[in-house]
Computed example of a mutant assay.
Amino acid sequence: MPPNPAPLTSPTAEDFRAWHRVQSAALAHDRPGEPVPTATALQAELTTTSTRSRMLLWLVRNANEEPVATATLRLFTDPGRSHLAEVRLTVHPAYRRLGTGSRLLSTVTEAAAQAGCRSAVTEVMAGTPYEGFLATRGFTAVLRLTWLRLALDDIPERIDKLPDVPHPGYRLTGWPGVVPDALAESFARARQGMDDMPTGGMDFGEVRWDVARVREIAEVVARRGEQLLTVAAVAERDGAVAGYTELVVPREGGGTAQQYDTAVLPEHRGHGLGLWTKAEMLRRARARFPGLTAVQTDCADDNRHMLAVNTALGFRPLRRTVEYQLDLARR
């Protein structure tokens, strides 16, 4: 490996196949039994970006041109988050403990500093050597997460009945893809319900929501070949979105879906809208995508309310991860 690997500027089809080999081997080793993204899905994830961020890619090969490591650096361009960089680094299990990860991490964090970022964050499996690897390189643990999985065959029958429980003053609605025009403004406002989500000590910054942003997120999901479903609770008094939940379904419409945001505006909390919308989402997802086998989500360990909602729906812990942060000004 050269001392300073250069980012990929024009990745080829072979580069993406090599990237997939590294990722597949690492996932099989580190998270056995969990699904591995297809090569097509992985390439779409790496190449489909929004106007809110840009991505740099590194693919490291050894002297025999075998792929040994990958890294991504997401640089946020929003005014409220332009200080932040997100790092994802993977080393093939056969090439670990040879210095590859250390040199690649140094290269990537240097690129973040040169881009003007003050913080870099990354996520690793809890209780693994990755934590020590980061701690000895100046990273600090800032947020602990529990990833949960719901096997759709195990959904209790009562969940199908939850949407029929009266919630006076509210009604449920939903849509695939981009939010309908009639709800766009209030849905953008409802996204502010994520503002007080637990972020630990992370230098998360400020996300500014507007109609253009929520539409672009849906469009990015579609360009990746995935399908976005949203279920919302609407207040009868003004027809505005009070809370919502989102689900992203894989391109093929089967396998494991990923839960995105679930939020309720502060003035509408205490009515069970989070549980109501998530239960309705599960019912609709099963009906629309019979090939789905599971739903996966993550939740900050400090977010006791959402952990309780997920547990009530039948989600069970899958793994635990830790978000680490590097103060680039102190490197």
Rank of each mutant, 00 (worst) to 15 (best):
L145N: 01
V68M: 10
G272R: 06
T277E: 10
L183G: 00
T230I: 07
A300T: 05
V142G: 04
P7M: 01
P168F: 10
A212I: 01
P163E: 00
W276G: 03
R189S: 13
A218W: 02
F139A: 03
A135H: 11
P2K: 07
A71D: 01
D196E: 12
M55N: 14
R118F: 08
N310H: 13
E86I: 00
P32I: 01
V124P: 00
A94G: 12
Q227C: 08
W58K: 09
T146M: 09
A63Q: 06
S82R: 05
V264F: 03
P93S: 13
V121M: 04
P290Y: 12
L148A: 14
E280K: 13
R251V: 09
M197F: 13
G101L: 02
L265P: 09
A44V: 12
R74N: 00
V214T: 15
G255H: 08
E14K: 10
G239S: 12
A242H: 03
K161I: 09
R284A: 02
A190T: 07
L56K: 14
H167A: 12
S82N: 02
W209T: 09
R171D: 14
V165C: 05
T199K: 08
G291V: 05
G174I: 03
H29L: 07
A141G: 08
L42G: 06
G255R: 09
P11K: 12
A235K: 10
G254W: 07
A242Y: 06
R269L: 04
P37A: 07
A233H: 00
R96F: 03
G127S: 12
P250S: 05
D196T: 11
R215N: 05
W19S: 10
H83A: 04
R74W: 00
Q43W: 11
D30Q: 02
P166E: 09
L228K: 13
R118L: 07
T12C: 15
M197T: 13
G80R: 10
M125C: 12
